[in-house]
Structures are given as structure tokens and as C-alpha cells.
Lab assay of single mutants.
Amino acid sequence: AVSDRLIGRKGVVMEAISPQNSGLVKVDGETWRATSGTVLDVGEEVSVKAIEGVKLVVEKLE
């Protein structure tokens, strides 16, 4: 699937994400809805860990 190529890629949070609410991330110039187990603020760099349906699962870049 086209989304599989995104796993491991870096992105930037465009709309804040929390465990309760999905947000938006931009990866390779495309905007995706994303979820995370932690709070991520706009502008934070993330990496794509998995894909669930049409949402990316991301975590903060260390």
C-alpha cells in the first residue's frame, strides 16, 4: 500500500495530537490524520510507527 512507505519517515505536527484526540502531521509534503500515545504540540518532529486504517501512529522524535 502507498501508506506503507511512510513507516519510519519523519514528519511535523500540524495540529496538536493527544491520546484522546487525533491531529494532523505532514510527512513528505502530504498531510495525514495521526494518533499518538502522548501529547504532541504543533511544530514537534515525529516519526511514523504504524498505520491504522487511514491514520498514522506517530511518536516524538528523540
Rank of each mutant, 00 (worst) to 15 (best):
A1D: 15
A1L: 12
A1N: 08
V2F: 03
V2A: 11
V2L: 14
V2N: 11
S3K: 06
S3A: 10
S3H: 11
S3V: 12
S3R: 05
D4H: 10
D4R: 04
D4W: 02
R5V: 15
R5G: 14
L6K: 03
L6R: 04
I7M: 08
I7T: 04
G8N: 06
G8E: 03
R9F: 11
K10W: 08
K10I: 10
K10T: 11
K10C: 07
G11H: 00
V12Y: 09
V12F: 13
V13C: 06
V13K: 00
V13A: 03
M14Q: 15
E15C: 07
E15P: 00
E15N: 07
E15V: 08
A16L: 08
S18G: 12
S18K: 09
S18C: 08
S18A: 11
P19G: 06
P19W: 05
P19S: 09
Q20L: 14
Q20K: 09
Q20S: 13
Q20Y: 13
N21K: 12
N21C: 15
N21V: 14
N21W: 13
N21F: 12
S22Q: 09
S22C: 06
G23Q: 01
L24K: 10
L24N: 05
V25H: 00
V25W: 00
V25P: 00
K26Y: 15
K26T: 12
K26W: 11
V27G: 01
D28E: 14
G29H: 12
E30R: 04
T31D: 15
T31H: 13
W32R: 05
R33C: 07
R33M: 12
R33Q: 15
T35G: 08
S36F: 01
G37V: 13
G37T: 11
G37Y: 10
V39K: 15
L40C: 05
L40E: 02
D41C: 07
D41W: 08
D41I: 10
D41L: 14
D41V: 10
V42I: 13
V42A: 08
V42Q: 10
G43N: 13
G43H: 09
E44Y: 08
V46K: 00
V46G: 02
S47T: 13
S47Q: 12
V48S: 01
V48W: 00
V48D: 00
V48E: 00
V48H: 00
K49R: 13
A50T: 06
A50D: 07
A50E: 07
A50M: 08
A50H: 07
I51T: 07
G53D: 14
G53F: 04
G53N: 06
V54W: 07
V54C: 08
L56V: 09
V57K: 06
V57R: 09
V57Y: 10
E59W: 05
E59L: 06
E59C: 06
E59M: 10
E59D: 12
K60F: 04
K60P: 09
L61K: 07
L61Y: 12
